[in-house]
Nucleic acid binder design. Structure first.
Lengths: 193, 193
DNA sequence: AGTATATTATACTAATCAGTATAAATTAAA
DNA sequence: TTTAATTTATACTGATTAGTATAATATACT
């Protein structure tokens, strides 16, 4: 055995993730990918398979990072309600920050590929359901601590908040006035009581 | 002057709208378009300009149809709350009906093009804002009739419901269990009181 | 009927696409 | 140092892309 791989597979995958995240599957060319990944075409195929396999690998990495990101962001509030407020406001502020927003790679994929490719329908659905369970755990904390009403429909509330998160993320791509996002968040938080 | 156009421009545009709606901008080829529109390539360019201009024309037509569709669907309930329930449940049921769902052409465009093309950022934002004003009018009816609380933040509620509509529409592309959608709708409707 | 004009259909362009064959370069083991 | 194995880089493939030039066709007006 000889000649170790010259490039860092993890970093190359991160670069591919960013390209697909920003441009989507169709609009990302192999030239875009190899350029950003800093590797040649045959190296890409040897390490990651074809374009769609690379996309899937990149998306799977994204969903893992995204889930843990959501998890940690939900720890930032003193109360459950405040935690969700921080999470949603954070989405909005990221989008108004410098540069064009990429939104959420998983949501982008739900729109572009899920309707035409069952594999991505399943992968994206399962990620959203996983986010719902993360939300659910947080809400349970609030119910047990007495912050939230004992008759709270925990699962329904979690799923409702996932829909809010998706809707807000997509709406931000059209860069609405700040008040639009703030109002929507304010109303969504009234679901928590 | 001579030789009238052989094809119906309106029907050709409808066909183009369906293609772009289903596949998005990048994944729709001129062969797809001319085939579905039933016209030849030069006829398309003569009548609608290039691919992007055709896309924009198709999207503008869609937003008009969509707005009036939403308007009429909001008339179906006895109360304001019931009207919004019907609207949201209708979205869900359309997606579970036969065939793969296309979702909303405008939302698809928000995800695919708005972040990279200011024209579509504006066009899609304005459509969502227009939907919010339609919602607002409906909510005002409820406040005036006494169905809804007098201190209802009408604009915020309307914008919150737009976010719910977007989130639900996108989530349906991943075909979640029916209960997911139903729960989310149930929670969203608690914003109306 | 003849002519001018607009719309068709065919066929082409140059560029780009995803994917691969080939060969040079590199390195660990013998 | 030689050999074998693996990854590089270059260059190519055939297909497809958006867009257009050309020529045939059809029609309203003179």
């Amino acid at each position: 055995m000889v000649r170790q791989r010259e490039f860092d597979e993890g970093k190359a995958l991160d670069a591919a993730m960013r390209v697909f995240w920003e441009k989507g599957f169709e609009a990302s060319s192999l030239n875009d990918l190899t350029f950003e990944m800093g590797i040649q075409r045959p190296s890409l195929y040897a390490a990651f398979g074809d374009k769609k396999q690379l996309f899937e690998t990149a998306l799977r990495k994204y969903t893992q990072l995204h889930a843990s990101d959501i998890r940690s962001k939900l720890q930032k509030g003193k109360t459950v309600k405040e935690s969700f407020r921080f999470l949603l406001v954070g989405i909005v502020e990221e989008e108004y920050a410098i540069g064009p927003s990429k939104g959420c790679f998983c949501i982008n994929t739900m729109v572009e590929l899920a309707p035409h490719d069952e594999k991505f329908e399943i992968l994206t659905r399962e990620h959203q359901m996983y986010l719902a369970t993360i939300f659910q755990e947080k809400i349970e904390q609030g119910v047990h601590s007495g912050e939230l009403a004992g008759d709270t429909n925990i699962k329904a509330l979690a799923q409702g908040l996932v829909i809010t998160l998706i809707g807000l993320t997509v709406m931000m791509k059209a860069r609405p006035e700040r008040s639009f996002a703030d109002n929507a968040i304010q109303m969504a938080l009234t679901m928590i009581k």
